[in-house]
């Protein structure tokens, strides 16, 4: 990436289960080329659809067994996928 001409965009997607083909239940978009940018509508049908649109998958939440005694407690969304895309500054 050329920091003089390019910026990183990142897209967090949370799926309904651990499959990248799953339904998207949450999303956050951050744009190094346009810090005020926000996507208020769900951008894709699935994580695979994001791949098909050119996003690179760079991190996946691990599958972790629950702590003994806490098997039925819920907290954060479990199935988080992090994508990136490099864009020219002029893109934003």
């Amino acid at each position: 990436m050329n920091p003089n001409t390019q910026r990183q965009q990142v897209l967090f997607l949370w799926m309904e289960d651990s499959s990248l083909e799953g339904r998207i239940v949450g999303w956050s978009f951050f744009d190094g080329a346009d810090p005020s940018a926000d996507w208020t509508e769900v951008p894709y049908r699935s994580g695979v659809a994001a791949l098909a649109d050119g996003w690179r998958l760079i991190q996946v939440s691990p599958l972790v067994s629950p702590m003994p005694g806490h098997e039925h407690e819920a907290s954060f969304l479990k199935h988080e996928y992090l994508f990136e895309r490099i864009v020219d500054i002029s893109h934003g």
Binding site: G26, W27, F76
Partner: peptide, 14 residues
């Protein structure tokens, strides 16, 4: 069970 703004990463949930 979450703590304060630990969920601040979530911009949009269906």
């Amino acid at each position: 069970l979450i703590h304060e703004t630990d969920v601040g990463r979530y911009r949009h949930l269906k």
